[in-house]
Amino acid sequence: MSAEAHATTLGMDHRKLAMWTFLGSEFLFFGAFVSAYLLYLDTTAGGPGVEIFDIPFTSVSSFVLLMSSLTMVLAHSAHSRGDLRRMRLWVLATAGQGMVFLGGQVFEFTVFYREGLELGGSPFASSFFVLTGFHGIHVFVGILLLLSLYTLSLTGKIKPNQDLKTEMIGLYWHFVDIIWVIIFTVVYLIPEIAVLD
């Protein structure tokens, strides 16, 4: 056999290519929710609208999620140097920040709910809760992945030379973060400023 048969055609790992392929399609997923939300910005059926948002609070949780991307990339960096101990530390830090973000979202939903913003109240409420809810589910899945990574690295199933696994989970995690970068601006800040004007 000739030598080039050993490598994959494009010279990259299947799993990384698959992860990127999947992430590419996720834009179509979140894009549809964001579109529905933008269409229904003013369709509040007499209920609360965007003025209900607590921008300082959401800013803090957005910041936490953004910084979790830093710890995630540091985890991968440590793993690619074979330093599993530090990798575990950063992975836990990332998962912890994810939990803070999720906790913030649960708190935010509860407050909104008490103030009269209910899933079935208006198309605006439906599109807000379902969009941010699905992002929350993505964060939750990410936390599960991170905790699994942590556990499996303790049991020896994930070895120092397998940094691709941390990298893949990292790609997913950064993607979820990037989606929140868009949501924070398009869903929270811009409508809020447009209303204030």
């Binding site: 229904y40 059926a45 899933l119 079935g120 109240g121 208006s122 198309p123 439906s126």
Partner: peptide, 12 residues
């Protein structure tokens, strides 16, 4: 009970 497509509350 969400309201995405329900014209009664302005859904499209």
């Amino acid at each position: 009970g969400a309201q995405f497509f329900n014209p009664a509350t302005g859904g499209d």
